[in-house]
Design a protein around this nucleic acid. Structure first.
Length: 622
DNA sequence: TACTCACAG
DNA sequence: GGCTGTGAGTA
């Protein structure tokens, strides 16, 4: 048994936790009564890495493939519950649950101490903790396209849940991530991956300037890890150890540069998490490792408010503790299939399922066992070795967006019953699209639109194409029109002789927008209007989708911190008279359109203000 | 285009 | 366990 001091952002003070795992915890330097252990540096005779491996870290497109890659996964603890806790000005110690109708969808860690989990009903949770704070999600009222937090217990008959507040908050977090790191993949509303490559590279160059000298000798090995020069660097978080007594006594071994980049990565992750606490008051868990799969497993390994570091050398030991089903995309039937084809059937080997798979199957074996699904075979092969070097993808490629509701009882029996919900769906979609536009600096519009309805076991779907409309109010109008049109078509779809009763009573309905294009292809609003007036049903002559040019946020990184670069390209700049922002000449037209659109958008903006009303709310709904 | 299934919270 | 999204496959 190893006694360690657990790090934490919120409650870092003096809490001593015991772990019976081979991990190494480092205090976060909040307490001044803690003595930190010196780094355990034992340089290998020769580095396994080349200058190219190191240099690739500094390249957005190559870093993830480097054996020195540093990928971080950050996960907000019980996100919805923490959001509600902050919204209601409560502390991390108040037991909070987030409610959706009668079921609990998030439990704060303070509430978990009472044994409450997501399976509980509201009643059973209250029995476990009478002073539990219960916050229902925001809701749309039937017929109202704006969501609100209400001071009563909403009923599913007249309301639809809105997850918009969480998405907005998620966007704020993304901004923080992006201000810190130049390559961020949003994995879900409360999870992101980050490629720390450039940040690590810069810190390495500052700490060990001699590395710069060899940088051109790409295929040469890196020099030995030096004994000095680490400044006052220390591990942050919980470091997974190898099966060596030595590491437990002397700390995690640093013998090659992969250990050094992890050391730096642990500090970066910690700094980032502190930012999140400071700016938005969220506790998070983070994981740092070579690849996304490791980072993700690591972030879930120590919770809440803790981070876990998986050095390359610790990968086999770390993966022992997981099942193949713990990996993303293998949690369901595919994972079951993989297991059924590969399991040993013996008890001992099941304890190290991943190790067994690694040691008993060649890639060829896997391919034949997976019916020649080479892709799956390769994925499993890499996953069990912790070497699935996958690139981070940006959220630009979202394919569709849907707003959906399941109706309780026979409450939707005719068009008139459904129409108010269509308003809700449209409001939901437009708001979210607007959010996405702001987030990604694009004007994105769908070319496809679909209405789905379920009656009994039968789901019917009607789809149509649409021409992009830039202005949000106009776009909203159009969606409403089209949804009504589609409703008419769905109602009159008949199988044989059946009449429109085939869609009623409706137990589920949804609107989906998809086929997104960027309107940046249009030079100005006039051209767009012209395009609209010639709207046809055909799919031809679409404006080209230009993926957003990523903002160059690397400027906020270590080497340039505090410095503002303004000299470059000043000749091509122009200052907008409306907003005083510096705009590239080539973007002037687009920017003017932006202001036109802004004015047209006043309606929606006033709606947004309504959404702010809940802030500062002190009284609990119930 | 219409529909189904799988997956992740 | 209900609800809410997403993406991929198929005919």
């Amino acid at each position: 048994m190893l006694r360690i001091v657990a790090s934490g952002c919120v409650n870092p003070s003096t809490k001593v936790v015991s772990f019976n795992l081979n991990v190494f915890g480092i205090d976060c330097r909040f307490g001044n009564d803690v003595t930190t252990m010196p780094l355990n540096i034992k340089p290998a005779d020769q580095s396994r890495f080349t200058y190219k491996n190191l240099r690739d870290l500094n390249d957005n497109n190559k870093a993830y493939k480097s054996p020195l890659a540093v990928i971080c996964h950050v996960d907000v603890n019980a996100f919805f519950a923490q959001y509600e806790q902050n919204r209601l000005n409560l502390s991390h110690d108040d037991p909070v649950v987030c409610l959706q109708w009668n079921s609990i969808i998030a439990v704060s860690y303070a509430a978990r101490k009472y044994g409450i989990n997501r399976m509980d009903t509201l009643e059973s949770a209250k029995r476990k903790c009478p002073h539990l704070v219960v916050a229902h999600t925001a809701v749309f009222k039937r017929g109202d396209p704006t969501w609100k937090y209400v001071n009563y217990r909403p009923s599913p008959v007249n309301h639809k849940v809105s997850l918009d507040p969480y998405r907005r908050e998620s966007r704020k977090m993304m901004r923080i991530f992006q201000s810190f790191c130049d390559l961020v993949e949003k994995a879900s509303v409360d999870e992101s991956f980050m490629d720390f490559g450039r940040l690590v590279f810069k810190r390495l160059m500052l700490l060990f300037p001699e590395l710069v000298k060899g940088m051109e000798r790409t295929s040469d090995r890196l020099p030995q890890v030096p004994l000095e020069g680490f400044s006052d660097l220390d591990w942050q978080g919980i470091v997974i150890l190898c099966d060596e007594d030595e590491e437990e006594k002397e700390g995690p071994v640093i013998s090659d540069w992969d250990d050094v980049v992890d050391l730096i990565g642990s500090n970066l992750a910690y700094e980032l998490r502190q930012m999140l606490i400071k700016e938005l008051n969220y506790t998070t868990s983070a994981g740092v490792g070579r690849v996304k799969t490791l980072a993700k497993l690591a972030s879930g390994y120590n919770k809440p408010d803790l981070q876990t570091i998986v050095r390359s050398r610790a990968i086999p030991d770390f993966l022992k503790r997981f099942s193949i089903k713990d990996f993303w995309s293998l949690g369901g039937k595919i994972g079951d299939l993989v297991l059924s084809r590969l399991s040993s059937g013996t008890v001992e080997e099941d304890e190290d399922q991943i190790g067994y798979i690694r040691d008993h199957y060649s890639l060829k074996d896997l391919i034949s066992r997976f019916d020649h699904d080479r892709e799956l075979a390769q994925r499993v092969y890499d996953i069990v070795r912790g070497q699935l070097y996958a690139a981070l993808s940006s959220r630009i490629d979202i394919k569709s967006m849907a707003s959906n509701k399941n109706f309780r009882g026979p409450s939707v029996n005719c068009s008139k019953d459904l129409l108010p919900w269509l308003d809700v769906f449209v409001g939901d979609l437009v708001l979210r699209l607007q959010d996405l536009d702001e987030e990604t600096d694009t004007v994105r519009r769908p070319t496809k639109f679909a209405l789905g309805m379920t009656c009994g076991r039968v789901t019917k779907l009607k789809q149509c194409t649409m021409t992009p409309i830039k202005d949000y109010a106009e776009f909203t109008k159009r969606l409403k029109q089209l949804s009504v049109k589609l409703l008419g078509e769905l109602e009159s779809t008949r199988k044989g002789n059946a009449d429109f009763s085939s869609v009623y009573p409706c137990i589920q309905a949804s609107l989906t927008i998809s086929g997104f294009i960027s309107l940046e292809g249009f030079a100005n609003i006039d051209e767009l209007m012209k395009k609209q007036s010639t709207e046809g049903r055909s799919e031809g002559s679409k404006p080209v989708f230009h993926p957003r040019k990523r903002r160059n946020l690397g400027i906020a990184t270590l080497l340039t911190q505090g410095k503002v670069k303004s000299a470059e390209g000043a000749a091509d700049d122009y200052i907008c008279s409306e907003c005083r922002k510096r705009i590239l000449k080539s973007n002037m037209d687009e920017h003017k359109d932006y202001h036109v659109a802004l004015k047209l958008d006043q309606d929606l903006n006033s709606q947004n203000q309504k959404h702010q009303e809940y802030h500062g709310q002190s009284q609990l709904p119930f």
